[in-house]
Design a protein around this nucleic acid. Structure first.
Lengths: 367, 367
DNA sequence: TTGAAAGCGCTAACAT
DNA sequence: ATGTTAGCGCTTTCAA
């Protein structure tokens, strides 16, 4: 096979015009049995394949959908992307994937690229859905699009986890287990509106439970020296008995770091994650976490885009409460009697007043 | 912004011919300062963006590369894909991603689709590199391509782990630790030439060490009832003290299953994985495994494709020995004295003759 | 039932 | 320095 055959070659070999060849190959318009066979045979002989580029130019449609996510190294995005990709494939669409590495500039650039490529729609997760150049660009072009993981600003569809409510349910879990002094561990806090939502939801519900205001432990690097940060954090906040990590990887890393510091999880410190990645159930102690369904979200968002493109009725987004569920695990246990202090604290303003703590705890943490 | 502006619109507004507009916008060919400015301004005013489809049709190049992998739910592929994507992006190429879910039919279909989309190259992992319709299709079109993870059939470039050698080094590790009766745990054995390579390499080296022929435990489902399979396997092969899983997820699942069966890992059963995924180091016991660098493989394969496209000299593929390294971990320890039997066994043929075992072990396994 | 031709957006060869 | 035009592969009028 030398150069790729075009429809012209097929027509020539079949001894007919290109229009006839097109009609025969596409089953569009009338064709005599005889002609049809000759064309099909010619196409076969030449190993003919349509060029989608030519088709796209003339139809101004590419059957391609762009997908922009921060990183598929995070299984949450990977699963979502794959869910969407599957939906697209079944509908005869292909997916152009761009990872932004949590950079807003990359987001905007990605969108520009996708627009240039004439994608029929864009599926994307942005850093901040309320302030995104990428999104603005898409809107100005009125391109079919759907947010994924980001809560939609207003009236727009998006497939996302109810981060605020989910995080609140973690506060509930801590409260039920007697943990009133908690911490929130976050990575990429600034580059993820999801993490911020989770923090807010967590803080708010903690307040409603009369718990101390969660202390924030923010790490920027890849969590390599998390151990040092955690140690400092715990010595700064000796009352903390429960830690909520903004994702499961961080939670797992925190468990490891705690182990290094000879802090027993869950006896000395309970830890809860977020996302519900597979390995969370394989480890010991198993990870208490918020279980989410990234693959379904991706698939749903994919279907939404497709329906925007062909004008059919879009699938219903799940109810807020359906987007997550608390999953119990060995990493969260009731506060042991010896670690209990006087329980609930006063209102938030006074929450940073140190509460009583036993010598034993101090010892355990510093040995 | 209503309909997307074309270069014609820009030319019209700038009061010049399309060629001039094209030259000005692309910095190709001569243009007077005055014209250039007017064109740029017009383009700006109209929010003009080139249509890559038009460009592609005329240049018969799409600056798009196809990527076909089994599934990005597996972090190994996800990392590789992201590594490649990054390389492509830096070179101004986009990536069309198709996941095959380990189906060979999907592989061929994906390749056909990518050819129709006129991709400039294809990066792919196939089920069996020595018998792949997808690969044949690509070859018949003489499309630039590069295998990823698959060992290349002959003379072809591929970026892959030296599975055979890596698996052999696992046999070494077991031997060093006194484990002479081992098992091999595999998933998707039939749909992955990698898994088969690993098995072969492992078996071969075990033979060289005078170890018993590894018993094969193959699971087809998603490893949900792995526990039952493992139990049966261990009671069928009571001598086995070391288990080599064909990937880290399986290894982790095996550890969990062992725990359910009240088998202590690593005291009663040592386990080694493959891939070196991140969480392996976060769990307890940490996972002994073969560490690989999927991201680098993806990036390397990406660079190879790009160099094939623009005719530059391709990067060197790493030496076999550089593609992996054994990573020690808590899941593999020396065989405890009480579990030791008479050590080395005879030659392979007689390896299925049951060897002596202490009552204690039996008891531990069945309690 | 078939074919000729226009045109999708762009670039490049050629002419001015 | 600039404009005109052909042509990339395809579909779709419009005529025949």
């Amino acid at each position: 096979m030398g150069q790729a055959a075009t429809i012209k070659d097929v027509a020539q070999r079949a001894g007919c015009g290109v229009a006839t060849a097109s009609r025969a190959l596409n089953n569009t318009g009338p064709t005599s049995m005889k002609m049809r066979e000759r064309v099909l045979e010619a196409a076969n002989a030449l190993n003919f394949q349509f060029s989608e580029v030519g088709r796209s130019l003339q139809s101004s449609t590419t059957r391609t959908i762009g997908c922009v996510v921060p990183s598929i190294e995070n299984p949450v995005y990977a699963d979502a992307v794959q869910g969407a990709q599957q939906v697209f494939l079944n509908a005869g669409y292909q997916m152009l994937l761009i990872c932004t590495n949590y950079s807003v500039e990359a987001e905007a650039h990605a969108v520009r690229t996708l627009i240039a490529k004439q994608v029929d729609g864009i599926l994307l997760t942005v850093s901040d859905a309320h302030n995104s150049d990428g999104l603005d660009l898409i809107r100005s072009r009125q391109l079919p699009h759907c947010l994924l993981f980001n809560a939609a600003p207003s009236g727009q569809t998006s497939w996302s986890v109810a981060d605020h409510a989910a995080a609140a349910s973690v506060a509930d879990a801590f409260a039920e287990n007697g943990h009133f002094h908690t911490g929130f561990l976050a990575l990429n806090f600034l580059s993820s509106d999801r993490a911020r939502q989770r923090f807010e939801g967590f803080v708010e519900r903690c307040g409603e439970h009369g718990m101390a205001r969660p202390a924030l432990l923010e790490v920027d690097d890849d969590g390599n020296d998390l151990t040092a940060h955690l140690q400092e954090f715990l010595s700064d906040n000796p009352d903390v008995t429960g830690l909520f990590a903004s994702n499961d990887f961080l939670a797992l890393a925190a468990i490891r770091s705690a182990r290094e510091l000879l802090i027993d999880v869950p006896q000395d410190l309970s830890i809860v994650g977020f996302d519900g990645i597979k390995v969370g159930q394989l480890v010991d102690p198993s990870l208490a976490t918020i279980e989410t369904a990234p693959r379904s979200l991706g698939a749903g968002a994919g279907k939404t885009i497709l329906s925007m493109i062909d004008g059919t009725v879009p699938p219903d987004v799940p109810e807020k409460e359906q987007t997550f569920s608390f999953r119990a695990g060995g990493s969260l246990v009731p506060l042991s009697a010896e670690r209990k202090d006087d329980g609930k604290v006063a209102a938030f303003p006074s929450s940073d007043v140190p509460t009583r703590k036993t010598a034993k705890i101090q010892q355990e943490r510093t040995r």
